[in-house]
Simulated assay, not measured.
Amino acid sequence: MPAQKGKDLLLKLGDGEVSETFSVIGGLRTKTLSLNAQTVDVTHSQSTGGWRELLAGAGVRQASISGAGVFLNDAAAEETRAVFFGAQARNWQIIVPGFGTIEGAFLIANLDYAGEHDREASMALALESAGALTFTPES
């Protein structure tokens, strides 16, 4: 994957309808996607050379997304707040240029608002996966 522009990494929230439509929630200046898999250690006294052995396909997988920036409009701000206060697991998409799209249910774990007296009000959020995710490679 060659170098890509960070601004092209997009975070979108689904509208929850049967034929789901996804919308960009804000002008995020920083975005991070973390994919994690817990390992299951099955090392025992007969493990070759005392090297650790891991059980393939076991453990829990999860994804975390974080971002910070500004809301682009009132509707996006209101929808994000409603999802947070409703503790809703909603479908989100994160589009990684040169890689593909990861989609699935996430909960908003953190929703932060900040502002300095001489700057714009900003927001930050953190999402935690709440079910199986799908990956669609970029074509």
Results as ranks from 00 to 15, higher is better:
G67P: 02
M123T: 00
D118A: 09
L55H: 05
D112F: 12
L127V: 11
G100C: 00
S66H: 02
A130Y: 14
L107D: 07
F84L: 10
Q62W: 13
W92E: 02
R90Q: 11
H117D: 10
R119A: 03
R61P: 02
T134C: 09
I94F: 03
F85D: 09
G100A: 04
I65R: 03
F85V: 10
V60T: 12
G98A: 14
D112C: 08
T101W: 05
R90Y: 05
A114S: 13
L111T: 07
S64N: 13
A68F: 00
N73W: 06
L127H: 07
S122Y: 00
A77N: 07
T80K: 01
N73P: 01
A75V: 04
G69C: 04
V83N: 04
A130M: 14
E78F: 12
Q88Y: 13
S66Y: 02
L54T: 09
L55R: 11
V70I: 09
A109H: 15
Q62E: 11
V83Q: 06
L127C: 05
A68C: 04
E53N: 08
A58E: 11
R119M: 00
W92F: 14
R119K: 14
L107P: 02
Y113D: 04
I108D: 05
G100H: 03
E53W: 06
R90V: 08
G115P: 00
F84N: 01
A121R: 08
E79K: 10
G50R: 11
Q93C: 04
G59K: 09
T48S: 13
N110Q: 14
Q62G: 14
F106Q: 01
F71A: 02
T134I: 14
L72Q: 06
I94P: 01
F106L: 02
G131L: 12
E120N: 12
A63S: 07
I108A: 03
N73F: 04
G100T: 08
L111M: 06
N73T: 01
G104R: 06
R90L: 07
R81L: 09
S129N: 15
A77K: 08
E116C: 09
Q88T: 15
F106N: 00
T80S: 04
V70G: 04
T134E: 12
T48R: 11
A89S: 11
F85C: 03
G104F: 13
G131A: 13
L111A: 07
N91K: 11
G131D: 08
Q62F: 13
T80E: 01
G49M: 01
A58G: 05
G131I: 08
A56R: 07
L107S: 11
T80M: 05
Q62T: 15
T48H: 10
Q93H: 05
T48E: 13
A87L: 15
N110L: 08
S66C: 00
E128M: 15
I65K: 00
A58L: 06
V83T: 10
F84I: 07
S129K: 15
V96L: 09
I65A: 03
P97G: 07
V96N: 02
I94C: 03
A132G: 13
I94R: 01
S64Y: 06
A105W: 11
A58K: 10
E120K: 10
